[in-house]
Amino acid sequence: MGKVEAFQKKKLLIVDDSAFMRKLIADFFEGHPTIQVVGIARNGKDALTKISHLQPDVITLDIEMPEMDGLQALKAIMEEHPIPVVMLSSMTKAGADATLKAMEYGAFDFVAKPSGTISLDLHRVRDDLIEKVVAGSEAKVSKLKKVEKAVRESGLQKPKPALPSRPNPFLHGRKKLVVIGTSTGGPRALQTVLSGISADIDAPILIVQHMPPGFTKSLAERLNQICSIHVKEAEHGELVKRGTAYIAPGGFHMKIKVVGSALSLYLDGDEPPRGGHRPAVDVLFESVSFIGKDLIAVIMTGMGADGTKGLRQMKSRNNVVAIAESQQTCIVYGMPKSAVESNLVDDVVDLENIAKTIMKYLP
């Protein structure tokens, strides 16, 4: 009976140049009901050799390794043996940039090591790593490849409109506001959506992407390079402007406040995480529900149900159009599914049509 159960488990390959880290990650899955560690590899080259005969369902892959690093290995894996890959990254600027590159190459998701390449305190992210490995083991590789293609097609440098010569605040009581929430698969989904938004959009865009501190700044910088609209990491107290997308910084909930005739961003690092997340989509959605605006709310790929409670509050107080990404294009159909099942969603659309749908509802 035990052999049958083990055979039915999803197979995990751990790739890390540190023996300590390999052992630590393997211990996390000791006795796990659905995941079985079937092998370890010391670097990317070793991993490619072992993939063909171990045939894992999911891989954890360290970014920083000798001989063949994680990015090189990931690229080869997605070309030769497409498998869901969860990256392990250091919490540095270089680590964040490399992680975003990994997302573009087709990685399923990532976990940031708490304290460098060899993290003695990796147990702090144990639950997060396990959750993402389990979700990755159930993901369809075809979706990862499809999104990767969409990202490549959207990733062309686009001209920026000239910045206004004077402040261009989004005035309270006048225009519309777009709010977006996403998680696993979000960086690539955001690239597809934001690169499809016209530079003359007559609304600001507020975004919550589940990410740790440091990674959201790199994400904003990357998106700003390839989108017609301006994309930036949100700053506390700044007035929001139309034609600009603001990404909530990792470690802070993003809220909106009315300041005179304008709207201002409020970043809260003291309120506890909501559902394990800070920033949380629910917090942003609940905050904008109090400003009495016409709102366009978008919920895209991600695990869990973040955004549904906030959407319910928005709908009870405002004129809201809710858009959810379809199951057909979601890397993880969790957050959109929760919203759709609540009967709060007005449009369910494929990823490549979300930008067009947003623009349809703007004047």
Rank of each mutant, 00 (worst) to 15 (best):
H81N: 15
I51A: 10
L48C: 07
V85H: 02
D69Y: 11
L88N: 02
A94R: 14
K50V: 04
I51F: 13
M68G: 06
K50E: 10
T60L: 09
T60G: 12
P56E: 10
I77H: 10
I59T: 05
L48D: 09
M87W: 01
T49P: 00
V86R: 04
K50G: 01
H81G: 05
V58Q: 06
A96R: 10
D69T: 13
L71A: 02
E80Y: 04
Q72C: 05
E80C: 05
G95W: 02
S89G: 09
G95F: 02
D69C: 12
I59H: 01
H53M: 08
I51T: 12
D62C: 07
D57L: 01
M87Y: 06
I77R: 11
D97G: 00
H53G: 00
I83W: 03
T99I: 12
I83S: 08
V85C: 10
G95Q: 08
P66A: 10
L54A: 01
K93P: 09
S90L: 04
V86I: 14
I59A: 05
Q55L: 13
E67T: 15
M87N: 07
D62N: 07
L61G: 10
D69L: 13
D57C: 03
Q55F: 03
L71K: 00
M78A: 10
D57N: 13
M68A: 06
A94I: 11
Q72R: 09
T60R: 09
H81M: 14
S90V: 15
T99A: 07
G95L: 08
K75R: 15
Q72M: 12
E79L: 14
M68H: 06
D69N: 15
L48A: 07
D57A: 00
A98N: 08
L54I: 04
D62M: 06
I51N: 12
M87F: 05
D57V: 04
S89D: 00
A73V: 05
I83G: 05
L88T: 13
S90H: 01
Q55E: 15
M91W: 01
T49C: 11
A94K: 15
D97A: 15
K93M: 09
D62A: 08
V86E: 02
A96N: 01
H53T: 12
P82H: 09
L54W: 03
K50R: 15
T92R: 05
A98T: 04
D97S: 14
S89I: 06
A94T: 14
